[in-house]
Simulated scan of single mutants.
Amino acid sequence: MTAWAEKVVTSGKFSLDGGSWDVDNNVWLVGDDNELIIIDAAHDAEIIAAAVGGRTVKAIVCTHAHDDHVNAAPALARLVDAPVLLHPDDRELWNMTHPDRAPDGELADGQELPVADVALRVLHTPGHAPGAVSLYSERLGAVFTGDTLFQGGPGATGRSFSDFPTIIDSIRERLLWLPPETVVHTGHGADTSIGAEAPHLEEWVARGH
């Protein structure tokens, strides 16, 4: 059976550096009728688990550890009986939300996560957060970028643990080499494509987006 990506939108708060903002998050389910991987566990474990249904969850993969992307991870892990995977460079951020519950495994650059008839390749794309990752599937023609790349530019870098030159390097070196038709499934908002975003790199750099 051919794998596909499903989007579940959940709503809640993003909090960091003493501020709090209302946000809608994209949670991605990648797989088929039998098994899947969940990308990000945002806000509401029960809504995400309901979308899973009776399918086997191979892993809950965190694109980064900002609280709006991981706040439902422990509860979701219990509901769907799956491990939570995080890049080790984001462990400090994770501990700010879940000091008493460690992730179950680590993500590494170049790692392949098989699910159904596809594989998701882990691309370490720091900048928005130190351990931010993107997940690329050549077969799906898609990359799941979390908060690294959006429609219209890079993710925010004005808060703790973030760095603008680093996110630009990540996008330039890890994402823009992908085929231009590659669909970019983001952590918030609408999809875009590598071909739509690539021509604007120097504009982002010039304005220090």
Rank of each mutant, 00 (worst) to 15 (best):
L79K: 11
L79E: 00
L79W: 02
V80M: 05
D81V: 03
A82Q: 00
A82E: 06
P83F: 13
P83Y: 07
P83V: 07
D89M: 04
R91A: 14
E92S: 10
E92W: 07
E92I: 14
E92Y: 09
L93D: 08
L93T: 08
W94A: 09
N95D: 15
N95C: 09
M96W: 15
M96Y: 13
T97M: 08
T97V: 12
H98M: 08
P99Q: 08
D100T: 13
A102S: 13
P103M: 11
P103I: 13
D104N: 12
G105E: 11
E106N: 14
A108P: 01
D109Q: 09
G110K: 05
Q111P: 08
P114K: 04
V118G: 09
A119T: 15
A119C: 10
L120I: 14
L120G: 10
V122C: 14
L123W: 13
H124L: 14
T125P: 08
T125Q: 11
G127A: 10
H128K: 02
H128L: 05
P130H: 07
P130R: 12
P130Y: 12
A132D: 13
A132T: 03
A132P: 02
V133F: 09
Y136Q: 01
E138H: 11
R139C: 06
L140A: 03
G141F: 13
V143C: 05
F144M: 08
F144T: 00
G146R: 00
D147Y: 02
D147N: 02
T148P: 00
T148S: 09
F150Y: 08
G153L: 03
G153Q: 02
P154L: 06
G155R: 00
A156V: 04
T157V: 13
T157N: 08
G158V: 03
S160A: 15
S162Y: 00
S162V: 01
D163F: 06
P165I: 00
P165Q: 00
T166R: 04
